[in-house]
Every structure is written in structure tokens, then in C-alpha cells.
Design a protein around this nucleic acid. Structure first.
Lengths: 252, 252
DNA sequence: CGCCGGATTGACTGAATTCAACCGTCGTGG
DNA sequence: CCACGACGGTTGAATTCAGTCAATCCGGCG
């Protein structure tokens, strides 16, 4: 769904952080040029992931953190009993793998939802330069804090809201994040299935489908398979208003 | 509910981290003596909070992080509409305020559930010594990672589980955490009301009450007001087993 | 003693799940 | 080129789990 502004073949080249359109969202956000150079020194690029490919798996040791350059990723835990829980959807500029910092191994699995290119940040090297570059360390803390905040916003939603409000929240969240990345906040593609959305929001996929239908009947959105157009953002906002605004920016 | 092993008047004195029984749980966990001295230099102690007193409030600027020395704290967000969502219960050794790192102001409110004594870590000073003491920085990252992991475990629960399983999870979580702190994992007091438990678990307080009754009828626990005895830990574990074990240690 | 807040218990209601049928699109292979 | 099957999505009907409303209980405190 999310296409990089750069031509496709660029995904395979080293795009420096300084040139990357995601500078303002990603880890380098507030670094000065000297600090940026330090960070760029450790960034590694990999072949893009195809839809369904796994970036890292629960239990693997924490080799690296990953920033999404283009595409999208779902973070999930697969329980032995076959059940699965999706914990988040990540867009370009998001940093993945932070949960693993607690135990030195990933606690979740990260799977590409579409063709996705990734910047890899070897964790040990990142930690060492963090102590050399205070600005980077602070930025790293900021991103972790936001990850916590984003999950709290999600807890708030799951604890409080009805199906209708959850789906409205979800759409608004995606809309905002697309906007932040320079894409249209009103027309975009869902890179995840109804099943994924339902799982993420704690709803049955049928409920998701029905709520989409309601929103469409009300004239607030148009939805055709994975393609969404939002016609009345304010109507959706009103739905979630009686609960709190989510301020968390990244991730969730 | 949780009483410090030290006599009460000690709460008002500076208990050094090196002497604190929570060393193994708290921020100082893996620091060597020299590093510990650095950390101790910035720790400040305050008068204990009384039940219902607020440690920090959503929106206040992030002055400090706080470690619980004794007592317990609930973390919650109060929505303008009057509704509230509890995001976590914290016990001695837990570090509070990490969510604020993302935005430089607290995103939640922290309220004492009982008489609670606190160690204060001024945030700016903590950040500066983090860059000087790599071990501390790493430990700090570890705690943030665990906070993320704990919230993920909670998301998993709210997305997946039925009322019965949620309450069983909750009891097991409290039991484990009491055990880790040297208290009995089988007999303890709930410092929070049924209302709080329900709110936290995404259930009505009546449902909490009924599920407690069921567990009691089954002979798995005894519950009298705030006092809990667990008789069959394995029965509770079996209830949550078909979902995943939560490995997250701290917080949630 | 009587009040108040927290907790329990019961009856009813309803939102969302589950089960099931059906549709449309896409990709594959005859 | 078309037929077929698979998958993802939609829609409908029945069920159920938990929420809501309401009455009651209990212990603590003024």
C-alpha cells in the first residue's frame, strides 16, 4: 500500500538517512549532520521482503533493530494453540524490535504485509554509539517512550471502546499516519486483511466487515476491498471523541 | 498491601540502593559498585504518598522517573468525559514515568493505592549519567523494553481472552510478582478495588465479583474482601494455558 | 446508631461472536 | 480461452457472554 516516493530500483541502493524522505519521522529526527554521519555508519540495507516474509521471529536473539523504508509490517505473537494476536501495524519510519531490548530476544514476530524495504541497525553497535552521541540516545529514548505511549493508547481502546469506535479509531490512526508520511490521509489502501484488522482490534472479522458497511451506508467512507476513501473525517472523529484522543504518534 | 521488610520509619530515611532489598528488580540490577554510586548520587527520597495521592499527572512535564520502594501505584488516564482507564498496577522495584520519555510530559496519571514510598530520579540527570555509565544506559533500555513487553502481554490478553481467563491471568501475574519480591505468592492483599480490577481488565466490576465467586466455588482460591489465598495455582494456569505465557516481568 | 462506599447477587438486555451460506476476484491449469 | 478452485470478503440468523440495572449485604466510621 505505501509506496516510496523514490523509484523502485532505489530500494536496493543505499539511500543515506540524510537523503531519506523519512528523516523527520525516523530515528535521525533531530540529529545534527555530524551525529547523522555516525548513525549512517552502522545502517545496513537488505533485499526487500516479499509479502508474508518474516523479518524476525519471536525468540530469536536480538541482533538488530529495523526501520521500515517502504512497505508495511505486522507485529504479532503466534500462540502454540494456533491462535495469533496482532499487536501492531508499522509504516515507513517506524522502528521495530524495541520490545526485544527487555530480554535480548524478540518477543514478537514481524511479517511483511507487502513488498517492504528495511534498514537494519545492529543493536550492539547502536547501543555503543548511543553512549557516544547523546542526541541519538535521547532520540532513542523518545522512540521507546512513544512505543509505550502507543501501546497505552491501544490498551485504552481495547478496555473502553465498542466495535464501531475501535474501527473508527483504527481508520483515523491510519489516516493520520499516512498524512504524516506525505500520502493522502483520505485515500489509501489497507495492506492488511479483515482478519488482521479484527484480530488487532479484538473483534471478529465479520464485525469489521459489518462496521465498514455501516460507515459506508452513513456516507462517511467508501470501501472496496482494500481501498479506502474517507469522506467525513469529522464523523469518525466524533465517534471516538467521547473517549480520549490518542496522542501517540508512532507504531500502534 | 505490600509492606517493606524495613521498619516503617526507615521509609523516611535515605535507604541506599546498595542496601535496598529491591536491588535485583530495580534499575540498579546489574550495575557494579562504582556505577551504583553514580546512580545513587541522583536518587532523591520524598515523604511517602498516602492512599489516593497523586505522584504525577497526565500532561505535567517530565521532571523525573520514579521507582517504588514500598506500596503500590495505579497508572491511569482520565478521559474528559469522566471515564477512566487503568493501564497498570505497579509494585516495589517498578520504574514509573517511562511513557513520558516520548513526549517530555507524562501521558498518564499515577495514583497511590496505599501508603507508598518512592525514590525519585530526576530525568535530565538520569539521561546525562546514562551516557557516562554504559551499563546503566543498557539497563535503562532493558527496563523500557520490558515495559513494552508487559504492555504487549496485556494487549494479547485484552484481544484474546474471556472474562474468566483475564481474571486468572491477573491473579497469576500478581502472584508471580509478589513472589519475586519475597512475599508469599499464595496469600496476599489486593490493594485495588473491584472497580479498578474490572476497569484494568476491560470488564464490569460485577463480572469480576462473579468470577471471583466462581473460582472460589471451584475451590481454587479463597477471597474475602481484599484478601486473596490461592489454593490451586495450576488450575488457574490451565485456564490461561491455551493462550500464551506472559514473559514480561515488570509492570502490567 | 445510622450512614456510606465497596462488594455481592440476581434478572434482564444487548452487542458481538459464531455458524453458515454466498459472492466476487484472482490465479492456475486443463 | 475458459473452467475451476481457493481465498478473502460480505451478509444473515442464532447464540452467548458479559454489561446494565437494581436490590441487598457488609464493614467501617462519624
Amino acid at each position: 500500500m505505501v509506496q516510496s516516493a523514490a523509484p523502485l530500483n532505489l530500494c536496493l541502493l543505499k539511500v543515506s538517512c540524510a537523503e531519506c524522505s523519512l528523516m523527520e519521522l525516523c530515528l535521525p529526527r533531530r540529529l545534527d549532520p555530524a551525529e547523522l554521519t555516525q548513525l549512517e555508519g552502522i545502517v545496513r540495507h537488505r533485499r526487500p521482503l516479499q509479502r508474508g516474509e518474516v523479518l524476525y521471529r519471536r525468540g530469536e536473539s536480538l541482533r538488530a533493530l529495523y526501520a521500515i523504508h517502504s512497505g508495511s509490517i505486522k507485529i504479532h505473537i503466534s500462540a502454540p494453540g494456533g491462535s495469533e494476536q496482532i499487536l501492531g501495524f508499522h509504516l515507513p519510519g517506524n522502528l521495530l524490535g524495541l520490545d526485544g531490548c527487555g530480554t535480548d530476544s524478540y518477543t514478537c514476530t514481524a511479517t511483511a504485509l507487502e513488498t517492504t524495504s528495511i534498514c537494519e541497525l545492529p543493536y550492539r553497535r547502536l547501543e555503543s554509539i548511543c553512549t557516544l552521541v547523546p542526541g541519538l540516545n535521547r532520540e532513542f529514548h523518545r522512540l521507546m517512550g512513544r512505543a509505550i505511549g502507543a501501546e497505552q493508547a491501544m490498551l485504552l481502546m481495547l478496555g473502553n471502546k465498542k466495535a464501531e469506535e475501535r474501527l473508527a479509531s483504527f481508520l483515523l490512526n491510519l489516516s493520520r499516519r499516512h498524512g504524516e508520511r506525505g500520502f493522502s490521509p483520505l485515500n489509501f489502501n489497507l495492506s492488511m486483511s479483515r482478519h488482521d484488522i479484527g484480530n488487532y482490534l479484538g473483534l471478529a472479522l465479520e464485525t469489521v466487515s459489518r462496521q465498514f458497511a455501516h460507515f459506508q451506508e452513513a456516507g462517511w467512507i467508501s470501501v472496496d476491498r482494500r481501498e479506502i476513501s474517507i469522506h467525513q473525517l469529522d464523523a469518525l472523529e466524533k465517534l471516538v471523541a467521547h473517549s480520549l484522543e490518542e496522542e501517540a504518534d508512532n507504531i500502534a
